[in-house]
């Protein structure tokens, strides 16, 4: 064996080929089957897609690096299920490009945050967390209420998401900026189209409490309120947590 190696280390091309071969095996065996084995991702016929406003909010969540301190993955452990709710299923993040499972809980898990607190609580909390949780270590995101949300390219966002596999319709893509506005302005004419295109379960509310304009706060709160609510699959009977 060491004799063979004696020859291998005299050949640069041989070393390169062998390194690539040896290093490729693990990934191929662990990743490729995840795309082909059907059991990997559960069936969820009721699965909804994110609305344009929720997509925009998700992008703000990414922009501000929220994932560095908050996970969105409840593990199959008894204490986690009791603290946060039913453990996360693969299907729940199947429209998440990329997933935001996270790796660290400086703050709590957010996988089942949706509709747990009021919109007003979220708006106050994001504006300055210590106004509602005095011991909090989260930064105050005061600029979210000041920033006007960019909606003009939301159609392109939805089209790109469709290119990677999220089933958006042409109609949803064409009306994306309008639907973003409508979802945060329930009394406007645009609100009806949102329910029609995204289902009656969609939250159509004044997320930041103001009807006048669409802010980054509207989008982020809309996203936080849909977390865990795209499908009911996790609330169906599942094997018990360890």
């Amino acid at each position: 064996m060491f004799g063979l190696h004696y020859n291998l280390e005299r050949s640069a091309v041989g070393l390169v080929a062998f390194i690539v071969l040896v290093a490729s095996i693990g990934g191929l065996i662990e990743i490729a089957p995840l795309f082909t084995i059907d059991e990997t991702v559960e069936e969820a016929p009721d699965m909804r897609v994110y609305t344009p406003l929720e997509v925009a909010g998700r992008n703000i969540y990414i922009r501000e690096g929220c994932y560095a301190c908050h996970s969105q993955m409840i593990r199959t452990l008894r204490d986690e299920v009791e603290r946060y709710g039913p453990y996360s299923l693969a299907v729940e993040s199947s429209y998440d490009h990329p997933q935001l499972w996270g790796s660290k809980r400086t703050g709590p898990d957010l996988a089942r945050l949706g509709n747990k607190y009021s919109d007003a609580w979220h708006t106050i909390h994001l504006n300055n967390p210590r106004d509602v949780v005095p011991e909090s270590k989260m930064p105050a995101y005061r600029w979210l209420l000041r920033a006007q949300l960019h909606t003009d390219d939301l159609g392109e966002h939805l089209a790109a998401l469709r290119a990677v596999g999220v089933p958006y319709t042409d109609e949803q893509i064409a009306n994306a900026p309008l639907d973003a506005y409508g979802q945060a302005n329930p009394d406007s004419a645009a609100a009806g189209g949102v329910a029609k295109r995204y289902g009656d379960a969609t939250n159509i509310r004044l997320f930041d409490g103001e009807a006048t304009r669409l802010t980054d706060m509207d989008a982020l709160v809309a996203y936080l309120q849909v977390l865990g609510n795209l499908t009911d699959a996790a609330h169906q009977p599942q094997p018990e947590a360890e």
């Binding site: 990743i31 995840l34 729940e92 993040s93 199947s94 990329p98 966002h157 990677v164």
Partner: peptide, 18 residues
Amino acid sequence: AKSYSLFSGVQDAMTQWW
């Protein structure tokens, strides 16, 4: 500058931690 990753959910998580 914005892009969406090709993979999602569990496949993306595995690729990411690989």
